[in-house]
Design a protein around this nucleic acid. Structure first.
Lengths: 215, 215
DNA sequence: ATCATTCATTCAATCGTTTGATTGAAGCGC
DNA sequence: GCGCTTCAATCAAACGATTGAATGAATGAT
């Protein structure tokens, strides 16, 4: 299957080029010609490898979902106390948001675009379900490891965190206020912990620890 | 100024038509021809009244911001306890989200579109600043009226609530899960109250009241 | 009161451009 | 020479914008 390997690489090159064009120009200004030019390929190759523009955009969205999932998963191997584990994972994710906000803008554009077409609406749903599942797993594992049960179910806490991050991202891509975002991120983590440990034994101190600024 | 009145009404008709087309077809499928047909007007009228397609879209976004601001402002005239005031306002707003989710999808598309162009990026910033200011005012007024000071500054709490709502809206337009959204909304309000009243005197009971399901 | 002029508004028709997609021939490793 | 890959060239369709003429209400001069 030497052909398939080369084909997969060609697809990856085109997808990477599409990501750059989409992030730079926005979804309404992105054309198959610009993508082909960015990839150093002919325009006809898009139809050849993906069937059409829509299918390429869906492939790009799936690639972004995969990348984000990797990032989210990459920052959870340290079983520690509840507050530190959650704060560490969320802040690691936020570093990637700050590093390339254009990619977040692009991802929202693609998600809304997929939501518009019946054949791809499931992508948007799977995106949120996937992120929430990762966070819920993290919560569940840490909860098990530390023996601290959560006051709210892990999947509800996960949706709270993922949704809260979405809100922070939307504000951040609008005003690019790094300092404010960090403060709001700290409050989001504190709120999530308050929900998770509400009326629990060690709640007050855990919240206090998480709310404290970094050194 | 009889001319101006007629002109303003014509503009409003075109904007209303643009809202319908945008909500129905999405921003990438919206054309000046479709908008003109929907408005029962000639295509040239868009250039005549707005200058171009972009300016019309910006006008639509501003109109949506105005409507949302009205909705947000409409549900705060009852000075009561902190928990009820906040929960009431947020749930009143959510009713409008549930009633017409397509408008929310459209508004995100327009916001991201405005964010792409330097001449209109300020619109996206003013949108969030405006919503946050309304919520911050609500918090500040209720805080003054009840004599309960907030543990976190009102503008920070406002950003937390607006951002949290954004996250909930994004999930809701993806899966349309009404029941789950209500549960998540309840948790969001509880979390906001926990932030507002953290370590305060009447905090525990107030949180408990707000967290309780409706009858 | 009458008529000429001005001005904002509306329209069908068309402008030049750009779009996504396709064609048929050429390239090329096997 | 066969099958997968690449390309320049081209397709019809749709795009935003503009044109110049037609409409009719307001204005001012006589």
């Amino acid at each position: 299957m030497a052909r398939s390997e080369a084909s997969e690489e060609r697809r990856a090159v085109i997808i990477a080029a599409a990501v750059r064009v989409l992030a730079r120009e926005g979804i309404t200004e992105t054309t198959t010609r610009k993508i082909a030019a960015e990839a150093g390929a002919n325009q006809a190759m898009i139809s050849y490898y993906f069937g059409g523009k829509d299918e390429l955009l869906y492939a790009v969205l799936q690639e972004m979902m995969r990348r984000t999932g990797e990032i989210a998963r990459a920052s959870l191997p340290t079983p520690q106390r509840f507050g530190e584990a959650l704060a560490g994972a969320v802040e690691a994710f936020w570093a990637h948001v700050e590093q390339a906000p254009e990619l977040q803008v692009m991802q929202y554009e693609l998600t809304l675009y997929a939501l518009r077409h019946p054949e791809s609406a499931w992508l948007a749903q799977r995106q949120y379900a996937g992120y929430c599942a990762i966070v819920a797993d993290l919560i569940h594992e840490v909860s098990m490891a530390t023996g601290e049960p959560t006051a709210e179910p892990p999947d509800a806490l996960a949706r709270f965190i993922v949704g809260g991050l979405d809100g922070l991202i939307l504000q951040f891509i609008s005003d690019h206020d790094v300092a404010r975002a960090h403060g709001d991120l700290r409050r989001l983590i504190a709120a999530a912990l308050a929900l998770a440990l509400a009326r629990g034994a060690s709640a007050p101190s855990a919240i206090g620890d998480a709310v404290a600024e970094q050194p």
